[in-house]
């Protein structure tokens, strides 16, 4: 129960970071946080049906569901790639405009065009 509440809170914090903070680096942090919240949720809930690691050595039975773990491996790598690309874009935006504030970047771009 408490872990679900914490995960929902984590997700909301990340979402607040994306929507409510103007700094684009912190927005990217927010993106990483919500991604990780979903990853943890998926793996945590998937491990409720068993109690052993899904590596079939002798005497291991009643393993946890291995599918969420494999899926989340993919999701984590994709999340990292997106974060890397977003940071690169943020770097370029900063070099052009000298600020990380999304509203000011918006304003500068619209003044140019």
């Amino acid at each position: 129960m408490i872990e679900r509440m914490l995960l929902a809170l984590l997700f909301l914090i990340g979402f607040w970071g994306i929507v409510g903070i103007r700094n684009i680096i912190k927005k990217i942090f927010g993106l990483t946080i919500i991604n990780n919240a979903v990853v943890i949720l998926f793996i945590l809930e998937g491990s409720r049906i068993g109690n052993q690691v899904p590596i079939l050595e002798e005497g291991i039975e009643n393993i946890v569901d291995p599918v969420p773990q494999a899926l989340m491996l993919t999701a984590i790598v994709i999340g990292v790639c997106i974060t890397a690309l977003a940071l690169a874009l943020a770097f370029r935006l900063y070099r052009h405009s000298g600020t990380f504030d999304i509203d000011q970047i918006h304003r500068q771009v619209h003044d140019v065009t």
Binding site: I49, G50, P54, I55, L56, E57, E61, I63, V64, D65, P66, V67, Q69, A70, L73
Partner: peptide, 22 residues
């Protein structure tokens, strides 16, 4: 999915690590 992997996963893929098998 878990039951399938526990019973047949190792025979089908040859790997012991089920996460790797998937």
């Amino acid at each position: 999915a878990r039951d399938h992997m526990e019973n047949f996963g190792m025979a089908a893929s040859g790997a012991r690590n089920m996460v790797s098998a998937i």
